[in-house]
Design a binder for these strands. Structure first.
Lengths: 202, 202, 202, 202
DNA sequence: GATGAATGAGCTTTCATTCAT
DNA sequence: CATGAATGAAAGCTCATTCAT
């Protein structure tokens, strides 16, 4: 079955090629101005070829988004395995989030763009929430573990999560890709400091 | 000059009417699916009339956004005059932000939609940054005052502001308009607690 | 309200103009090869203008078909008022049908084309059957009247109608628009003869 | 030459397989929505394989139509050999036609679809008329024989044929495949009665 | 022989914008 | 002032056909 294998690999490679081209074009022009023509040109493929691999424009975009989310959680999970202390794990989560925004400033934009777009909200939630909720549960457990150890204040976890999420996602809004890695690291440190001990002296 | 005055007032009223109709339609359909036809219909005006008051679709949209920002800062300034303590003023800012999201869940969506949209970013910054920087400077002063009083940690203000901004804007991402006013208040209290004293015990 | 009246008349005229252009193009190229571009060109209008008056291609086609049916029954009803004898009325129906095929060889083609096209069948039936059944009932009454007078054989009316309909519609299949009016008249006479007294001697 | 024979038989079988799949898909979706992809899938063959056996889509369709016509005349000829009386032969023709519509409701649809389709008309006539005229001549002879025997009225045969054809084809228009065999038989009997002796009493 | 992959050409539809009245 | 009517330009998508393997 060597042939079938090669075929499958080639198919995967093509899809990845299209995904990357798509990501670039979507990021550059935004969803609506990113025409399939432009993506095809960027991928150096015929337009119809895109449709051979992806059912339609939305499908392609969802492929890109899913890919990004998977990438993020993949890195995060690897990272979380290096340290089991809940406080440290939250720091790692912040760090990984910001690194992700650095690596893929575009993915966040697209996610927001669509999350905000009424017509897509439903579709996105349907397709990505299964993925998200599973992973988010992971973070919930970290908070619970921290509270169980008596090291994190007894704030209801749904609020904790929403606040943590806002903070992390909120950073994405301002991530223009114009910061150096050092500036990012510095901001991440301050962010940790604020989140863990607040801004008020004493 | 009574006639000219009335004319101006009527013109203002018409523009406001269009602005409101536009806001509703943009929020309901997103920028691209919100056609000028739909907005005209919602405003109960002829389509060409929109063009009489606004140069083009983008111009109308920017009108809506500017209007929202103004509304926000108007409320915020009123609020900040009631208490001169910097910590309290930050709390008021958080409170007002969340109230704004409650009042206008749509404005935030639109802002994100466009902030994320490469083609608009420049235009938005050009038109709204004068407005924004002035007002944001106000918040910077609050942080500086707090640090001068020795009550806020000596975190560089640009980071403080970015973190504060992220937190506040981040809440907007999750403001679906589905929360009750009480839930919102509760979340705001926890948010203050976290921002001022952190999540870590002791 | 003279202005509103004129507007309405102009609108009607435009729609008629498009309808006629559409009918010509549909007839010349068939439904699928008749592109909206071609129709627009034939109507000497911008393509988007067609969409200003008709929701979509199907809508335009249905307009054409409905128009044809109405035209047919309009002539038929006028004709039937000239003679109340059932046998004569059937003859008039045959005559009018064939004249209709002569006047509009295209309408029949289109009707068949779509009637035969699975995707349209439902839509056509939904939109045109109300119109058709009402009119067909008229013909049923003629048969019943003829039977009541003891001049038409007691064949169940549903079969009578189906046979009569087949015969009439069947003529449409062969109406290529290549016959002269005289040939048509001649064929109509023979058709009546066959339908009323059969082909068998004695 | 056994090998060549087997090859030819296998080729025939493959072509038949494709023809059947095509007929099903064409009938289900109509000509234009019946894509080669769908037909290939229905035939459980690769799409390119279809092109190995048929030059193009039209060629395949003509294959299907020709096949149907052949099938019809094959049955008809067998039937006509059982009785040499012209009147009876006409009855047999009606009977066989209706049975054909019952067996292959799809073939008629396709035939009409294309007969009506200007682009195909020429091609169809060129390819199928040789077949048709030969067979239609057969029916002409029956009428002439009937007239020679003094049993059929002296209506010019071209009109007789057109009327007979209209009647028979017209039944096809209404053959939705929803009638039971019994209802069909009943209608056939009434049809004969009308065609031979008319609907008028006395 | 058989086929998956690729694509050019073409289609319907949408919509911001203009303009004559 | 107000607007209905008109449209150019562009987008998403489909599909018959070809070709390298």
């Amino acid at each position: 079955m060597a042939i079938a294998d090669r075929k499958r690999r080639e198919r995967q490679a093509r899809m990845q090629l299209i995904l990357n081209a798509g990501a670039r074009v979507f990021a550059r022009y935004g969803y609506h101005r990113a025409s399939m023509d432009l993506i095809a040109e960027e991928a150096e493929l015929g337009k119809a070829t895109l449709y051979y691999y992806y059912k339609n424009k939305d499908d392609l975009l969802l492929g890109i988004l899913t890919e990004g989310i998977k990438d993020f959680f993949h890195h995060l999970e690897l990272s979380l395995q290096t340290n089991k202390d809940p406080i440290e794990q939250l720091k790692l989560t912040i760090r990984e989030s910001m690194l992700f925004f650095e690596r893929h400033p575009d993915y966040f934009k697209l996610y927001m763009y669509l999350n905000v777009h009424p017509a897509f909200r439903k579709k996105i939630y349907r397709l990505m929430h299964p993925l998200l909720t599973q992973k988010i549960g992971m973070i919930k457990q970290i908070f619970q573990e921290g509270q169980a150890q008596g090291r994190i204040k007894d704030i209801p976890t749904e609020h904790l999560q929403a606040i943590f999420g806002s903070l992390v996602m909120g950073m994405g809004i301002f991530s223009t890709g114009k910061m150096t890695h050092e500036q990012l690291e510095e901001r991440a440190r301050y962010l940790e400091q604020v989140f863990f001990t607040g801004i008020v002296k004493e």
